[in-house]
């Protein structure tokens, strides 16, 4: 038991180092414009992700439950989700610039995790539910996807301001395509956020007998959901694709972060454990 948690501790710091290295790699890629460097950075990030997965598994086995039930565990899982989804988008759309913007966010999240208490606490009975497992794992994918939408929104907004057109034109898709890729990430996120809300509601119904009680975390996940729904409609409405959509993707992620960090910090509620 104790051993696995120690292994997790060591892995956690190795993972931070690898993500940091990957970030430096991505920055270097932009600075010296060598495609090989981007590949190397993506490989380092992938190794980081594999070890990160191993760390989470160690913690899960060590603690005897899903490693997603307190601020530390959820923060590191959130970083894991963003790392996973960003790598998928980097590979699928051959778009390593995503890494340069995603890596700092991943490091911020994992840095936030490092500041939280790592103690393994007993779970109250209501938290021992497989619905809760689905609830939290879908949240991680949703948040990871919205992290990527945020990154793509930022890239979209910066795209025209960047000098050295040759490099950026080669490595950042044209606006229409960039918007579509961002749209894809929002779709993935919104689908998983909906899973998160529904599985959370099912769990709450079984545990407390009330599937929706306007607790601040629930309310903020609804706010986030509405913001991304508005994003989708803005894209269709008069074809407000592009800039307006990009701004919404950025605002949406601010809501995500608030739902995750802000609600626990500023507002009271039954979600205060995670």
């Amino acid at each position: 038991m104790v051993n696995l948690l120690n292994v997790e501790s060591v892995l956690f710091y190795v993972v931070i180092c690898l993500y940091f290295l990957a970030m430096i790699g991505y920055f270097l890629f932009i600075a010296i414009k060598k495609d090989g460097v981007a590949k190397a950075a993506a490989i380092v990030q992938t190794v980081g992700l594999v070890l990160h997965t191993a760390a989470l598994i160690c913690r899960g086995i060590g603690a005897g439950r899903l490693p997603m039930t307190n601020q530390y565990e959820f923060a590191t899982s959130f970083a894991w989700g963003l790392s996973l989804v960003s790598l998928i988008f980097i590979a699928k759309y051959k778009f390593p610039v995503i890494g340069a913007f995603a890596a700092p966010v991943i490091l911020l999240l994992i840095g936030y995790a490092a500041m939280q208490s790592r103690e393994v606490k007993e779970l109250m009975p209501a938290l021992r539910s497989s619905w809760l497992g689905f609830h939290v794992s879908t949240a991680i994918i949703a948040y990871g996807s919205f992290g990527v939408s945020f990154v793509l929104g930022v890239i979209f907004l910066l795209r025209d301001r960047l000098k050295d057109r040759g490099f950026w034109d080669r490595h950042v898709p044209a606006k229409e395509k960039l918007d579509l890729i961002a749209y894809r990430s929002v779709c993935l996120g919104l689908l998983f956020l909906t899973f998160t809300i529904v599985t959370g509601a099912i769990w709450a119904e079984q545990a407390w007998g009330s599937y929706w009680s306007w607790d601040p975390k629930e309310t903020w996940s609804l706010v986030t959901w509405l913001v991304y729904a508005a994003y989708l409609h803005f894209r269709i409405f008069r074809g407000w694709k592009g800039k307006a959509a990009a701004i919404f993707a950025v605002v949406g992620f601010v809501c995500v972060i608030f739902t995750y960090v802000g609600v626990n910090t500023f507002l009271p509620g039954i979600h205060s454990y995670a």
Binding site: W220, V223, L226, A230, V263, L267
Partner: peptide
């Protein structure tokens, strides 16, 4: 409606 509802929910939580 979506934007107002989102704002109202956010307000209600503060």
């Amino acid at each position: 409606l979506l934007v107002i509802l989102a704002a109202a929910c956010a307000g209600g939580s503060f």
